[in-house]
């Protein structure tokens, strides 16, 4: 719009462009910026008595003073990074297989298979896992029937189960960008890699991964964000020891009516995720604009 060429046609063009941008601007302002500003204001006040509030940083200091919140925060970040790494580790070969090995119909079928779990809601998927893994569940019964286990086996309510659930939930969001970026890799580059003496490992390391880097980065960002912000999966599969930071936020808002500290936690989560994504981009030498496009 600042293009001098368009200034000749004057205000009409500019108004038209503004009108076109209106839905986006409204969306951004009403549903993104405004709530965040409100959240920030709420997080910066302290309840004095009934209906009386004062400006204070207590909600933030509370977070740093109380090790419980810290631990949850760190734990959530570490588990999310692990889940992202695992998703990448599993998703990459899957995507490679779909994009480069499969041809024609099989490719679409396989891709669709990856998609199918997402036709039902996350809640249903998680309950599906619970039915499989619970003490009186399918796998436990099978193990007993097969004589591998003597008694019922409880596979729910531990960190490994949370990890399984998170990876499962995130897989599609890793596979889609990876498949599209690997699809764009010319087969002859891979063949040239082999032709010039490379083996599977070096071709993957020197040619496939550098090419796929933008897809890897965008997949990881999406998966990391989803995981960090996930509430259902850690809560339902994790049981009594689940401890997820979003759970803390939910609890503060809904069961404690403590919007002030909930808002502060929300902001801290925002800072945490932005920081980790930023570090990740720096480490992989990607830029956000490259990754998003």
């Amino acid at each position: 719009m600042t293009n001098p060429a368009s200034s000749g046609t004057g205000g009409a063009v500019r108004f038209g462009a503004l009108l076109l941008a209106m839905p986006l601007l409204l969306w951004l302002f009403l549903l993104v910026i405004l709530p965040h500003v409100d959240l920030l204001l709420v997080s910066l006040r302290e309840r004095i008595s009934y209906g009386k509030y004062e400006f204070s940083l207590i909600n933030y200091t509370e977070f740093f003073v109380e090790p419980l919140y810290w631990n949850t925060y760190i734990r959530t970040a570490v588990m999310s990074i692990m889940a992202t790494a695992l998703t990448l580790l599993i998703g990459f070969p899957v995507s490679y297989y779909i994009a480069k090995v499969m041809r024609g119909k099989g490719k679409n079928v396989l891709f669709l298979l990856c998609l199918i779990p997402f036709w039902v809601s996350e809640l249903v998927r998680t309950f599906g896992w619970m039915i499989l893994l619970r003490e009186s569940g399918v796998i436990s019964n099978f193990l007993q029937w097969a004589g591998i286990a003597d008694g019922p086996v409880e596979m729910l309510y531990n960190d490994a189960t949370i990890m399984v659930g998170l990876v499962y939930t995130s897989m599609l969001f890793m596979v889609v960008p990876l498949v599209s970026v690997l699809d764009s890799l010319d087969d002859s580059l891979i063949e040239a890699g082999y032709d010039l003496g490379g083996n599977a490992f070096t071709v993957t390391r020197d040619i496939v991964i550098p090419h796929a880097m933008p897809g890897i980065a965008s997949g990881c960002i999406v998966v990391f964000m989803l995981t960090l912000g996930n509430y259902l999966t850690p809560n339902l599969l994790g049981g009594k020891d689940s401890l997820w930071f979003t759970e803390q936020i939910y609890t503060q808002f809904i069961t404690r009516f403590n919007w002030e500290s909930g808002s502060a936690f929300g902001f801290l989560l925002l800072v945490l995720s932005s920081m980790i994504v930023w570090i990740g981009l720096k480490l992989s030498r990607q830029t956000l604009s490259e990754t998003v496009s």
Binding site: E66, L68, T72, K240
Partner: peptide, 17 residues
């Protein structure tokens, strides 16, 4: 009171079993 209770509950949840 609910704030006090909340913290107690959080600590129970966070305790490793």
């Amino acid at each position: 009171l609910e704030t006090l209770e909340g913290k107690t509950l959080d600590r129970v949840k966070a305790a490793q079993s």
